[in-house]
Design a protein around this nucleic acid. Sequence first.
DNA 1: CTTACTAAGATGTATGGTGAATATATGGGG
DNA 2: CCCCATATATTCACCATACATCTTAGTAAG
Lengths: 245, 245
Amino acid sequence: MTEAEFLEGYDPGVHERPSVAVDLILMSVVGGRPAALLLRRDEHPHLGRWALPGGFVAIDESLDAAARRVLGAKARMTDAYVEQLYTFGAVDRDPRTRIVSVAYFALLPAARFAAALKGAPELTLAELVVPWPGETGGPVEARSADGDALPLAFDHAEMLGLAMLRLRGKLDYSGVAFALLPELFTLRALQDVHEAILGVRLNKPAFRRRMLDTGRLEATGERETGASFRPAELFRCRKTMPEQE
Amino acid sequence: MTEAEFLEGYDPGVHERPSVAVDLILMSVVGGRPAALLLRRDEHPHLGRWALPGGFVAIDESLDAAARRVLGAKARMTDAYVEQLYTFGAVDRDPRTRIVSVAYFALLPAARFAAALKGAPELTLAELVVPWPGETGGPVEARSADGDALPLAFDHAEMLGLAMLRLRGKLDYSGVAFALLPELFTLRALQDVHEAILGVRLNKPAFRRRMLDTGRLEATGERETGASFRPAELFRCRKTMPEQE
DNA sequence: CTTACTAAGATGTATGGTGAATATATGGGG
DNA sequence: CCCCATATATTCACCATACATCTTAGTAAG
């Protein structure tokens, strides 16, 4: 029997299968703090809690395509830096039925974050508070703009925590920081993003040299405007950006 | 309606779902080369090609539990360092039907690798040849002990490549190397593992210093035996080992 | 017009890690 | 007893980084 003949007669069987979903961690740095976009659940289970935008993976749709579809449907945007994070598969992670969820994170500049909030008013801006130092890991807390705690649904606090951990780990050897900044940015803005994600203050000249030495930055010669002090030079990220896994 | 009442009446629906599987990348360092255990497919599709051991995830079984079950069933072993790697979800990755596969890797000392080969004769030892330098990424090739190429089934070459990439990335900030060594080992053996995974030669005194400075090593005072030259001291890994994600 | 202030950007110095070379220690075998 | 191969230790030069300080460029107040 050839492989073609075998496939012709193949019966996928009827064993019970989990549902497969994607959850999307939409992240940015807003006001010097890491932030994510959440949806308030208006149905059981976890009614009233806050959840990541997500959706089921269709049978003829790849995981990456599902993540991009959710990005377009729930946040009305395309062209973000999207990367698979981890797959959560505890049996009881969703009380309705067995759902295996592939978590993705998307990184957005603050301006596009604000645009998403305007275009999709059901989304809520949440500040992420990381209660652990360095590379410890663990769940993070979400706070509203007023500082109120936003209780998270399902295992989404773990998902957000893992996203922060991954972001911290990738920050200084990959281009993820540039995905959080506009096309043109100052070195100060780049440093602010690094400090927000790492949760520590960095030394200015050292940071400056380190960034310039990577060869990833391209000086434009232009200056920022509107400052009441010496305007900083604007840089752009050299076009080889998000290459590493 | 309370959440309990909602769940009572919940109907999971009948939309078509992908199958969810786990594939296990059993890795070690054998003879100074990275190696993995493969199974020859004796059925369509990809009959005669070489595949990673794997299995479907049961409806009442977490992903991690499924990975450990496959470890026990296909390699007759338990208690390995197991970590989730990535989830592969291309629509056409399996020609039979839609299968989303969560890849895990397990790290084993060479001795337990040999024991697995003896206990499960259907397994084959494959040397992994990494055709790309550094952190580039991409598929890797598998070779038999005789040096013959072992053509890989499905997207398993990508899985193995991603495992190598992850291993290289984690090598010097996590304890993964110790999972590839026996309880007691010499610094030379530790360096051999590092060199095999990174695919480069390392400076001996610098490597030695770096390892001792991490504080992860514990000198035993014992020496290796059987050498016809000065025996090296045996170390063990301090018990705080695989902590990082 | 001068001066104060703020932040950008540059320079200098100390420190710690890394690589190469070299020296010493230790066991087995002739 | 000497020789050999390898482990282990020591030394020094070098480079990257952190921190402190200094200079520069712009606004704005007096």
